[in-house]
Design a protein around this nucleic acid. Structure first.
Lengths: 212, 212
DNA sequence: CGTAATGTGAGTAGATTACTCGCATTACGT
DNA sequence: ACGTAATGCGAGTAATCTACTCACATTACG
């Protein structure tokens, strides 16, 4: 027997086997992402998602058992993308300040495509897994990278202060990006450079050698 | 003649004349505020507001012609409160950095009561007036104060850079406060002091004398 | 060519909710 | 006391909305 899919809440009702159906699932996810970003959780109805995706509502429910599993899949994708961006920004082996500069640029670029998505996923959309709430797997890893950068700037010994500093940086970046998006100013290069300056100054405080 | 209330969309259907009804309206506004903050726009139904306020749904509609006018009234109140906080913080005649320190403290205190309100009002709740969208009366005045502080730190000549700096500061503070609230860490004194440090460093950059 | 995978979309049942209306109670002026 | 205006009540409703099903059509695979 063993239908193979036997999780508590299966995230897919039926595994897409052919290329066609894999494309369908992809299209649905993309459409859902766009709607969440543009219209918020309120506009996110399964019928609308199917419409925008250009597939029938039936097809949607063939792969996602319910609305929640769809939004979960979207959230997972997005947060994994965020983590990937972080890992890449760090992998360059540059100074912490350069890390932040790269990160900000990458984050701005990422949010340029779906400006409202992050906020909607974190604040509006109901979450089933722990993905997305404070102390989630995601936030742990996410903040960990910031902590690393902070600690690297402050001679390595981590303390509560470093954890707080990581929060401050992460949340400040988040706020600037989100509000810039709200005002349609994400593309403004001045916003980007000033944001980098804000974070860099904070990071380098008391560490002149790390300033560049 | 002259019922005095003659706007295009009257914000009140009937003006409360006795003390009792004024208290009722106050209770309704308070209940609505709490629900918006705690449950978000999705949980904000007129019946729930009336329930929480301890008044009948009929009483609610006696003073607010529709749901939108209620949320508008709440928004107006909140944003006016924010502006009041800004004006007070500046009125002390202290240095720009002290202004920011006071402001952050006041903002944190304000958001401690209704942590989610600001975000919900700005991002989720539909707006009828221009109150709340970019370039609104509110944002103009709000950012104006920040610009003032920035300009004061930079020898007075305002330019595009100053406006951008004001945005950065405002949005960074917003982000930190909002995410701290989400994590239940608004009370953490470290968060507060580090936020002040973040902004102060940025403001004082290139202006050693303004550092304190 | 049999069968499994995929796609369709009209339809529905259920829930939600903004708002009304007829009436009860309370306060005010005289 | 008493007429009148203000205030308060809350069951009810009409309308909307939407998650989800199902019976059937089409496409691909072996």
């Amino acid at each position: 027997m063993s239908t193979r899919v036997a999780k508590q809440r299966p995230e897919m009702r039926k595994e897409p086997r052919q290329a066609r159906s894999r494309a369908t699932v992809e299209t649905i996810l993309e459409a859902g992402t766009r709607i969440l970003s543009d219209e918020g959780w309120a506009g996110f109805t399964t019928n609308r998602v199917a419409d925008l995706a250009g597939v029938s509502i039936g097809s949607l429910y063939q792969y996602f058992p319910d609305k929640l599993s769809l939004v979960d899949a979207i959230r997972r994708r997005h947060l994994d993308d965020c983590l990937a961006v972080m890992r890449e920004s760090r992998a360059d082996g540059l100074s912490p300040v350069q890390f932040v500069a790269n990160l900000v640029r990458a984050m701005v670029a990422a949010h340029g495509i779906h400006p409202g998505l992050h906020r909607v996923l974190l604040d509006e959309a109901p979450g089933s897994g722990d993905y997305g709430n404070p102390n989630s797997e995601f936030e742990i890893e996410y903040l960990g990278y910031y902590e690393e950068a902070v600690a690297a700037c402050r001679n390595g010994r981590r303390g509560e202060a470093d954890r707080t500093a990581a929060l401050i940086i992460s949340d400040a970046i988040d706020g600037v990006i989100h509000n810039a998006a709200r005002r349609g100013m994400l593309a403004d290069p001045l916003v980007q450079s000033e944001l980098i300056r804000l974070v860099s100054l904070y990071l380098a405080d008391g560490n002149p050698k790390a300033a560049a």
